[in-house]
Design a protein around this nucleic acid. Structure first.
Length: 566
RNA sequence: GCGGAAGUGGCUCAACUGGAUAGAGCAUCGGAGUUCUAAUCCGCAGGUUGUGGGUUCGAGUCCCACCUUCCGCACCA
């Protein structure tokens, strides 16, 4: 029984059940300002129904409401404000946090599978800031889903197939050097890729050479296969170091090449359902004709040269994933610019009669640009993710050297703080906001940042270490003091933040929640001496422990480390 | 042209999905150090929420029109 229910029951009785408690519950809100109360009920809609001034209704009802379970209930203008009994509530919340390992989490998704497509870099290209977004958002959503009881399957749909690899092979055959490549694999492969694209502008025959090599690759030519495998191997090795730094793991690394032998089945399926049309030598699904109201462009299934397209591979993978994982939801964490692509894909699956098409969700995110322009490997204006992580690490190490020179494991903690800053920075805003790349913004450690939250956790842990006693959660934990109410109130909202973050597929809700909680705690910390041997010491320590627990738990949901010292 | 996302203090973003005086962080300015870590805290200043209409008790939020920016619209992925 939560407060909204309790309050709506009370209101329902005060109104002699003329309005259902469900309706009343919907109207209840939380005032922005705690001084106005913990919950509030606006009477405007009732004013209309009963043809009375809202102020009057509020005043009349406030008199009729019994205050059981509340410190006070008062009418202020057209609002009825409810104040929770703070000591009882504090005690309950803090004991929950200290004794329940999964405080704030729920089991709504028990027994359900969520497939999440994330990261998906192209092999032989460096991971860039764009891949960071997909990786970090996907990872956070996965953990948030788990916190809501779901079972998740994370898939890294590697871009490891396509004409570009024919071009790479062609370029390698002309200019490649094993020693140089082995010394710095992805960098050198990119150079080869950029070079052949540039030279192809004046020598178009190079493109044909690339296509020929890709055809050989598709036909299983030993030399082509060997080179492709090598490119893939060195790329994956390099990717892995980044995934390790970000703390991200995958349940499947089946990339596009994995679906190579499953394409014919998709084409056949579409043909059987009468969805395929020939147009200008290509095989397409004529969506404008099939769904005239939907405003889709056509979907190309096979190019005029017989090669399959992106959407064909995505259709194959979607079908495979449904067959294998029986997902309740399949989330694709892919840039917002691909919205239409996923809408098309779903439309085709629906036309093919797959009822689960509606369980596919595209989780888009805003484009990262550089100086307002789209980044492109071919044009050479990308920011490798490693560089950003390294810059953040270096800055964190400098801060530690300055502020805490005796810190043990300084290197490891510099890494946790540095990557923490990068990850948090990416997650703290609404995911579909576009971002113009700015290194200074990313490696900020002050104000609304990851390190701010980490530091708050460190402060709490430091107090607990210095305390002569450990927290006794069996002892009565009373109202700590009025200044602490803001913290307790925030702590109690952790569960709803987790729910909302999942419903909206929005990690920023957790990030913002953590910033608010950290701010409340830091403010309290500045005004209240915690380690004082009085009768409330245990209560205060319990509060500090609760804050530390929730901060650590929330940071973990975002994939950010919560060190004890920094 | 059609479709999508966005427009809120100098900058980056909030606003519990229609509620009370639009809140934070950066930057600026002024304070707080023998103290539980100052990666912190407190304060001043800064706003006609792109423009114009509409809906209603009430609009940053919903509807219509327009303006600006970014993205997408078949042989790249």
């Amino acid at each position: 029984m939560n407060f909204k229910q309790i309050i709506s029951e009370k209101l329902n009785q005060a109104l002699s059940q003329q309005v259902s408690s469900e309706k009343l519950a919907q109207l209840i809100e939380k005032p922005k300002d705690l001084a106005k109360g913990d919950y509030a009920f606006p009477t405007f809609t009732l004013a209309k129904q009963f043809r009375q001034a809202p102020q009057q209704i509020a005043a009349d009802m406030a008199k009729k409401l019994n205050t059981d379970g509340f410190e006070k209930i008062e009418a202020v203008g057209p609002y009825i404000n409810f104040f929770i009994q703070r000591d009882q509530f504090t005690s309950r919340i803090i004991k929950q946090i200290l004794t329940e390992a999964d405080f704030g989490k729920n089991q709504e998704g028990a027994g359900k599978n969520i497939v999440i497509d994330l990261s998906s870099p192209n092999i032989a290209k460096p991971m860039s800031m764009g891949h960071l977004r997909s990786t970090v958002i996907g990872e956070a959503i996965s953990k948030i889903a788990q916190a809501n009881g779901y079972h998740t399957i994370k898939i890294n749909f590697l871009g490891d197939w396509g004409t570009q690899f024919g071009l790479m092979i062609a370029s390698y055959k002309r200019w490649g050097n094993d020693q140089v490549i082995n010394a710095n694999p992805v960098d050198e492969l990119v150079k080869l890729y950029v070079r052949i694209n540039n030279e192809a502008q004046t020598q178009p025959e190079l493109k044909d050479e690339g296509r020929r090599w890709f055809k050989k690759l598709e036909d299983g030519d030993p030399e082509a296969t060997k080179l492709w495998s090598w490119f893939k191997e060195v790329s994956l090795k390099e990717f892995q170091t980044i995934y390790d730094r970000l703390g991200v793991t995958f349940d499947s690394m089946n990339g596009e090449s994995f679906y190579n032998d499953k394409m014919d089945a998709v084409v056949q399926l579409l043909a059987d359902k009468d969805l395929l049309t020939k147009s200008q030598g290509a095989e397409i699904v004529d969506l404008p004709k099939l769904l005239p109201d939907a405003n889709f462009p056509i979907a190309m299934i096979k190019r005029s040269d017989g090669a399959t397209q992106y959407i064909t591979r995505d259709l194959a993978s979607a079908i495979y994933r449904q067959d294998h994982y029986h997902f309740d939801k399949a989330l694709y964490v892919v840039g917002a610019e691909q919205k239409d692509h996923f809408e098309q894909m779903k439309a085709i699956l629906r036309l093919a009669g797959d009822g689960w098409a509606d369980d596919i969700e595209h989780i888009g995110f805003g484009l990262i640009t550089m100086n307002g322009k789209k980044m492109s490997t071919r044009k050479g204006n990308i920011v490798p993710l490693v560089d950003v992580l390294d810059a953040a690490h270096k800055l964190a190490a400098e801060q530690i050297a300055k502020k805490n020179p005796n810190l043990q494991n300084a290197e490891q903690i510099a890494e946790e703080v540095g990557t923490g800053a990068v990850i948090f920075n990416d997650l703290q805003n609404d995911r579909n906001l576009a971002i113009d790349f700015n290194l200074e913004d990313i490696v900020q450690f002050e104000g609304d940042t990851g390190p701010y939250v980490q530091y708050t956790h460190v402060r709490a842990m430091s107090i607990l270490r210095k305390a002569d006693q450990s927290v006794d959660s069996t002892q009565e934990i009373g109202l700590v003091d009025n200044e602490a109410w803001g913290i307790v109130s925030k702590l109690s909202e952790y569960g709803s933040a987790i729910q909302r973050a999942w419903q909206l597929r929005e990690p920023s809700i957790i990030a913002k929640y953590l910033l608010n909680l950290a701010r409340e705690f830091n403010s309290y910390y500045a005004n209240t001496k915690i380690l004082v041997a009085d009768k409330n010491l245990n209560s205060r320590l319990a509060l500090v422990q609760s804050v530390a627990d929730v901060l650590a738990s929330g940071l973990k949901l975002l994939g950010v480390a919560a060190p004890d010292k920094m």
